[in-house]
Write a protein that binds this DNA or RNA. Structure first.
Lengths: 140, 140
DNA sequence: TTATATGCAAAGCCTTTGCAGAATT
DNA sequence: AATTCTGCAAAGGCTTTGCATATAA
């Protein structure tokens, strides 16, 4: 559980707040907005600051412990776990829920296209928009 | 040139401002932010309102004449043209430039993955992050 | 003529920044 | 003890909203 030691390894400080943000992120199975994380933490620590959440998330992203994802117009964060680099996101336009999917060969396809034009690819973000199973049924 | 008649068909009004926004969007080969469009239009019509640009873009998106794309943290718009649904975007993290690419079978792959879980897919947005050819060279 | 659109100003998100006091190492 | 972090308040982008006036139909 101490991926967080990476913080100390950088000569930075492992504060209670940073542990809380990381823990909240890890508990939130999928992805969470800064605001959701702050609300979750506030249940235990009333008055926890959004500012601190943002600053900590920036740090975690920089250390490679978290990843920022853009779902539609909303930004969210997810903990980086082994293999989790590979999933992609679906956003339901009706209920707003998000689902993870795995598209085989996606990365290969994109790498092929980018290498042809000399673009050095770091990361691929894919977001699908539509209606989740539940909402699709209700509308049918 | 009168895709814009779709506006009148909806019982709405085809104003000079709406023509200007649409024209600016069509001229901007790739994608443009609301602000870029507003600046461009302001050269001809000083004092043109950002508000109007936003409202018009919303309308164009609703009518299917424009598409909103999310490039990293920035929102941009592009005119919808035949076949243009199929391209995807690369963002250079160094210079901020964006490039269009075409990834064959991308949509097929995503459709396969979504259909398995009953998600009704409307649109797929893919953004690759990295360094464009020019920036990659300078750093090498 | 009448409903719709624009201009302007103001408010609303989400996120970042500045600074003094608190806390980690 | 020294430097880094947090809390708070305030500012900053981008986008939306409200309302009176102007305008398309």
């Amino acid at each position: 559980m101490d991926a967080l030691e990476a913080i100390r390894d950088k000569g930075l400080r492992l504060t209670p707040q940073r542990r809380l943000v990381y823990a909240a992120l890890a508990e939130h199975a999928g992805h969470a907005t800064a605001d959701q994380l702050c609300s979750a933490i506030s249940l235990k620590v009333p008055g926890f600051q959004r500012t601190t959440v943002y600053r900590t998330l920036d740090l975690l992203v920089e250390l490679g412990l978290a990843r920022r994802v853009q779902l539609g117009h909303a930004s969210a964060y997810e903990a980086v776990r082994d293999g989790s680099e590979l999933h992609q996101h679906l956003v339901c336009e009706v209920c707003g829920s998000t689902t993870d999917i795995w598209v085989p060969q996606l990365l290969d396809g994109v790498r092929t296209a980018t290498s042809q034009i000399g673009f050095e690819l770091d990361q691929v973000e894919l977001v699908g928009h539509g209606r989740c199973r539940a909402c699709a049924r209700q509308l049918a």
